[in-house]
């Protein structure tokens, strides 16, 4: 008999997917961006990513062992947190940044709030924000081929980055630019995102409305009107694609209902562009997603679908 037939109470229809198959799909989807990051930034990038993953898994095991829980590092979720954190760091960071970041992500953001599925914000993003605010200098040391560069967004922002020229759109698309390890290559991230959509691991609503609202905001307040290159710069640069496909869609910290997902996506989009243009930091994706993460319980509460047959009060 196949696994599909199980004698039990409802639900009766089951799929083979479970936490680890879903998580494995996410890892597969992140591979192109990871590979490109390593190709683009070299050995240091590989080292940073490995440090992140190993220490994330290590802290998860350590915490669960210490609190006498079942050790669940086999479910890939700590690996993904570590990998996402690694992709969100510049490759120039000293060795202790990945370790400290993983500790914050796993212990403080994830385990202290109840572990897998209970975290109120995306652990990797929480850690990135923690590191960015604490070590602004280290966390924005973008280099490409050993030369310090400003990211396209920093150049966009101001006269303060005089002497740096904006990269060509095509470089932005393929990824040969300065930035965090995993966020430079738009094409690699889109490939991964499409894979997740195709495997139905993520729903199109959050990334779709997120990207669309960023584009709309870029037209509305980007300063150049309906200018294709402004829109593309906003959509392809920074951590937007990485955030939209892989982090805003985190199951535990995104809304359940379809309308809720759309609210989440639009909220992230609006906040991202506002922070990019008016905020103190050049990139707004991580803060935007974290802020919307905090609204998820509220969004869920007001978007509960009407239950069938209920008598109106």
């Amino acid at each position: 008999m196949s696994d599909l037939f199980v004698v039990s109470s409802s639900p009766h229809i089951r799929a083979k997917e479970n936490v680890s198959t879903i998580m494995r799909d996410v890892v597969i989807a992140l591979l192109p961006a990871t590979a490109f990051g390593i190709y683009n930034f070299g050995f240091l990038a590989l080292q940073t990513i490995i440090l992140c993953v190993v220490s994330a898994v290590g802290f998860e095991a350590l915490y669960q062992w210490f609190t006498k829980q079942k050790v669940t590092i086999g479910d890939y979720s700590a690996i993904i947190t570590g990998l996402l954190l690694g992709l969100n760091l510049p490759h120039t960071v000293p060795f202790w940044i990945p370790i400290l970041g993983s500790a914050f992500a796993i212990i403080i953001v994830k385990q202290l709030f109840g572990g897998l599925g209970q975290n109120f914000m995306n652990p990797a993003l929480g850690a990135r924000a923690f590191l960015l605010i604490s070590f602004a200098g280290i966390m924005t040391n973008w280099q490409i081929d050993g030369v310090t560069t400003a990211t396209p967004l920093a150049i966009f922002k101001a006269e303060s980055a005089v002497g740096f020229t904006s990269p060509q759109l095509i470089d932005l698309f393929i990824g040969g630019i300065g930035g965090s390890i995993g966020e430079t290559s738009a094409i690699a991230l889109i490939l991964g995102g499409l894979y997740l959509l195709f495997r139905k691991v993520i729903d199109w609503r959050i990334p779709g409305t997120y990207l669309l609202s960023v584009a709309v905001m870029a037209v509305a307040i980007g300063g150049n009107g309906f200018d294709m290159s402004t829109i593309l710069y906003h959509v392809f640069s920074g951590g937007l694609l990485l955030g939209a496909f892989f982090m805003a869609t985190d199951y535990a910290s995104s809304p359940v209902s379809n309308i809720g997902k759309i609210i989440m996506g639009v909220g992230c989009g609006i906040l991202t562009v506002l922070i990019r243009l008016y905020g103190g930091y050049p990139e707004g994706v991580s803060f935007a997603i974290i802020i919307m993460n905090l609204f998820v319980p509220l969004i869920d509460r007001y978007t509960i679908p009407k239950s069938f047959g209920e008598v109106a009060k």
Partner: peptide, 20 residues
Amino acid sequence: TVKGVSSNDTQISAISGATI
């Protein structure tokens, strides 16, 4: 104010991360 090292005596090198 300039980012990085100031090159003449009308320039002040801004604190990195605190241009404002």
